[in-house]
Design a protein around this nucleic acid. Structure first.
Lengths: 233, 233
DNA sequence: TGCGACATATAAGTCTGACTTTTTCTGGGC
DNA sequence: GCCCAGAAAAAGTCAGACTTATATGTCGCA
């Protein structure tokens, strides 16, 4: 999905980031750069670079004479893809998935409506292909193939909306959908109603019917939320 | 609003960040750490820390034997508050405001609906106060006072939704609203209809009427979008 | 002429040690 | 009890030497 551990400082981040986001260090905990450098067996320069990155994510704050203070969750840059990945890998993954799914339920319908107005013919074609791919793999435990087309579908919607803020949520949606298929309980086959809705959204976008695209997508996301409620009530 | 230029590397970022996000270096441009260190008159260690931060924002990519490559806009972490601030300070500020306003139009109505279900009595009280504050300052060019209550209002809605992803957009909304009042053309007095809508949203949340809160908030954001269309068609 | 292996230059990456600066804490004097 | 000066602690900064990956160019061979 992304670039794990490039360089020594990256390796340090791969350890420290998940540890902090998992709550191993309660907010207000104080770490010392030198000690961390020793613990990870890297030089102080490398450790400082890692701390700077954590600081830019607002996971920690570095102050003179004090040290590196872990910030409360409310300060974190929870939209940073790296932070999202770390948190999804952690213990309260279910809560993350819920948060992100609620975000989806707000964004995707509006994005679909905009896509109906702005999608290029190519994007419409891709959308239809994705929907058909979902149909073709909706039965017979072909979850991986289904997931592939599902992710592609939602990426196209978000991109075709023409809004960059929406487009950049493609990775988030991909993580959420992948998480549902891989880590969490999943029904052996996808919900047939959801498959139909995707096909209909592709139709609505193709026809430029913004209102219908939005309504149908809202139904999809409502379904995703209900699925979460069933799995983790 | 935030923490400008803490430390030497922060000062470098305050210069480099806006320059990159403004497009001063076309995507693919290659910078060299040593040269940058000279240009900003800092040591390489400091420069390296700054580059690491830019790298974590996906504004640049650092590769051996090549240098620091500026990435295309499509790679940027556009949800990073710092990046948002840099871009809003730049030349294509209007486009940013539009992107962010569209995001608001997707998120805030859903947030208001959730707030109606989850808001504490304290939050309801604060919300009503904010709405009243808006009413009280809606006439007579008291834009600053009006803005203050407007920002507070939307922050409460986003927080009361109980969704952390929504809550973290409070700063973004604050930037957008402040931008509208300060930098851009603004009607001498706020739209009376918008003021009324805010009061009604506060009512709906207080009464726990999620549907109405969502609908009314959608009207507010539609109004904000239309306002943009009028100002920059 | 074309292609692959090898050599080389380059820029990032890393480490170390010394020094500076800010800020908290401590303790003494009033 | 309060305030100010000094000390201590940790981050911040710098300079220099060394390592490593890698893009590119060169040479020989087919």
């Amino acid at each position: 999905m992304s670039t794990p551990g490039r360089g020594l400082h990256g390796h340090v981040l791969d350890s420290l980031g998940p540890a902090i986001t998992a709550g191993d260090f309660p907010p207000g905990s104080v770490l010392r750069t030198d000690e961390l450098a020793q613990r990870f067996d890297v030089s102080r320069s490398v450790m400082r670079e890692a701390v700077r990155v954590l600081e830019s994510m607002h996971l920690v704050e570095s102050r003179r004479r004090v040290g590196v203070t872990v910030l409360p969750e409310s300060e974190w840059n929870v939209y940073d893809p790296q932070v999202i990945r770390w948190r999804l890998a952690g213990a309260d993954r279910p809560r993350q998935l819920r948060s992100l799914t609620v975000l989806r339920s707000a964004v995707e319908p509006v994005a679909a409506g905009l896509a109906a107005a702005h999608a290029t013919p190519e994007q419409c074609a891709t959308l239809t292909e994705c929907a058909l791919g979902m149909v073709a793999n909706s039965r017979g435990q072909q979850l991986e193939q289904y997931l592939f087309h599902d992710v592609a579908f939602h990426r196209v919607i978000l991109t075709a909306s023409g809004n960059e803020m929406f487009a950049r949520l493609g990775d988030v949606v991909a993580e959420v959908l992948a998480g549902r298929t891989h880590h969490d309980v999943m029904f052996p086959d996808p919900d047939p109603a959801a498959v139909t809705l995707h096909v209909q959204v592709a139709e609505a976008v193709r026809e430029g019917d913004a209102g219908r695209a939005e309504r149908l997508t809202r139904e999809i996301t409502v379904g995703a939320l209900e699925e979460l409620d069933i799995l983790a009530p």
